[in-house]
Nucleic acid binder design. Sequence first.
RNA 1: GCGCGAUUAGCUCAGUGGUAGAGCGUUUCAUUGACAUUGAAAAGGUCGCAGGUUCAAUCCCUGCAUCGCGCACCA
Length: 735
Amino acid sequence: MNIFDKPYSPKEVEEKIYKKWEDSRYFNPDSASRRITGKDKKKSFSIIMPPPNANGSLHLGHALMIALEDIMIRYKRMRGFKTLWLPGADHAGFETQIVYEKKLEKEGRNRFQIPREQLWREIWDFTQANKKNMESQIRRLGASCDWSRKKFTLDEDIISKTQDAFVEFYEKGLIYRGKRLVHWCAKHQTGFSDLEIVHEEKLDPLYYIKYGPLTIATVRPETIFGDTAVAVNPKDSRYKEFIGKEIEVDVVIAKLKLKVIADKFVDSDFGTGAVKITPAHDLNDFEIWQRHKNEIKGPVEVINKYAKMDLVKHFPQSEEAKKYEGLKVLEARKLIVEDLEKRGLIEKIDAAYKHNIALCYKCKTIIEPRLMEQWFVKMEPLAKPAIEAVKKGKIKFIPDRFKKVYFHWMKNIRDWNISRQIVWGIQIPAWQCQDCDEWMIFKNKPQKCRKCGSINLEQDTDVFDTWFSSGQWPFLALGFEKTKKLKNLNTKSDYKTFYPTSVMETGWDILFFWVARMIMFGLYRTKKIPFENVYLHGLVRDEFKQKMSKSKGNVIDPLGVVNEYGADALRMSLIIGNTPGNDLAFSEDKIRGYRNFANKIWQASRFVLMNLESFNANKKPEFSAIDKKYLKEFEELKKKIAKQMESFKFYLAAEEIYHYFWHTFCDKIIEEMKARLNGENDNPPASGRQAAQFLLFEILKESLKLLHPFMPFITEEIWQNLPGNKNKMLIIEKW
RNA sequence: GCGCGAUUAGCUCAGUGGUAGAGCGUUUCAUUGACAUUGAAAAGGUCGCAGGUUCAAUCCCUGCAUCGCGCACCA
């Protein structure tokens, strides 16, 4: 029975072929490289798959990532490299926790009422189920990754080594605990790093408030209770006489004695040129306080973690204070403005002052800066070598322009708050004495407090920012051991063979979150770059360039597409027309086009095979001039495509082979050969037919190889049905 | 505010210092002989605007405009 008697059915073929690949174990470099010969056999090529978040299903962005990486991997494997693509899944700390919290909400439950261990277990089960589902989805997309090496970011060894890193950083002085203003989301009840907040332009009233003898302008009058000073620019002649003096300010619930200080930060042209200083609730004011620690009073916290007023403790004797207690920030703002107005203390109000406010990136709740003790990583010493490595070209960015964005961020980097007040993550190995508050950093619980000797020690309940562990993913996933000397490592160690990895392929949107941190951590811990190339893909958008989102209803499910049109068609439609760093407009029309192309490959193969009667592959026929021209052309095409593959121009390579196969091989060569295959216009008939057969068969075979990285399933299926290819597999053929 | 992109055919995008390219779409024609998931052909572009460099600019430089994005502690 000839497989070409039926139309090509991706659904049947793809699952069958994937199973064959897995059974062959050729995804594993140890098996595959034994079968491939070539001068590059000893060289390795490795990609660590960015582990998808184990909190949902794969979306088109994942499909794009899989397609790109599989193309590189298959190409290099066929080129004879020892090729490893290591798959994994990410526990995705905060992200997963909020996905799970939404689920809890639907069930009428609340995370704050669930004991820590139980919540952890529940989320664990949740991620395990997602993980399994995602792995099968990755298979459907044709990923030739080595499943025997798959890793999860909460595997025991990963947790352990992440904690080691924290201890090591601490010992080297790169970690400190500090009471700082932290970006706090009152809804999620956790602090964030600078990257997890977004800024949004907003119009708010700007209040001019009589402030003792001065007038100040503010958008947050409710923080007035926490004011500890007034600042002016040292050069501002209007306020010269006040500098260094104390003024008395009526803040409704009390009279505050505040010192006037001079600081260059203050812009004389803004507002009145005098600024109220609230170190507990404003990042700038906090910094001003730090510069004037000896002159003025420190932070007075008047807003609590629920973003509600909390001031009676500071003003116990004030009756008025009780009125404000427990009010939400915005309610308190309204009330204080009313009260100030009653006292004639509001000078004027600019109704629509345009400014930027900080929001939680996830729920868009207004960030309430809050004074908290957290663990911070000193970034500057880590950033320096990471900037150098890119500057010197040890790590290349594709596209190159992202270097600039990277440098800009790295040069202005600030210390990184890695404490998160959630349960889903790797718990920080820090222990606090309950008697004297001393902190100790050890992998395991110390016997007793080093300061007071108490045995009453508790572990920090906070967990790491998930990027603290993902930042170390490339070397941790490859089994890096800090404790052993490198030369003592088993020679078969994956770390030794595959690190530094060849390419990190991921979305540009996580350049700072992830890529930059991997470079910093990699250089610091392993003394090597974690990868040689960074390939950054863009966002997959809908056909109108709109972001896909559930609420817009324009989400395309990659698995739905695979079921209807096949993974090969999906992959082509994600690759062609998609340049690195740019977003992609995606539509079903496009997929249909490549489904048609798959059919074209099928039909062309069918035609060539149908006409192979009495063909002797071992006997090289006499080629005509035009035959030679075609063969030469094809050789040139191969070289061109190889060059494009090496320079990461997959969109060009794919288009090139697509165009050649359809419009040169099918439309021209096959059409021309038809007459010769039928023995027409041929003298003597046999040789012309032989040459035509040879030519068609040769170009078909070689085209399948060129197409394989892009469309692995259909090419493999056809390959195995070519005469003489029984039990042979295209996946390990020499390119 | 600082920075980064983009601007080329109806749409989505490539591209190059020397008569403009692809895919999709459109129009016309063809066709039971691998394939209608097809073939042949056609229409369609002052390559955002203004200067400059050059023998020659869509490409290099400068400025401007429009759109998009990133970063950012001016109350």
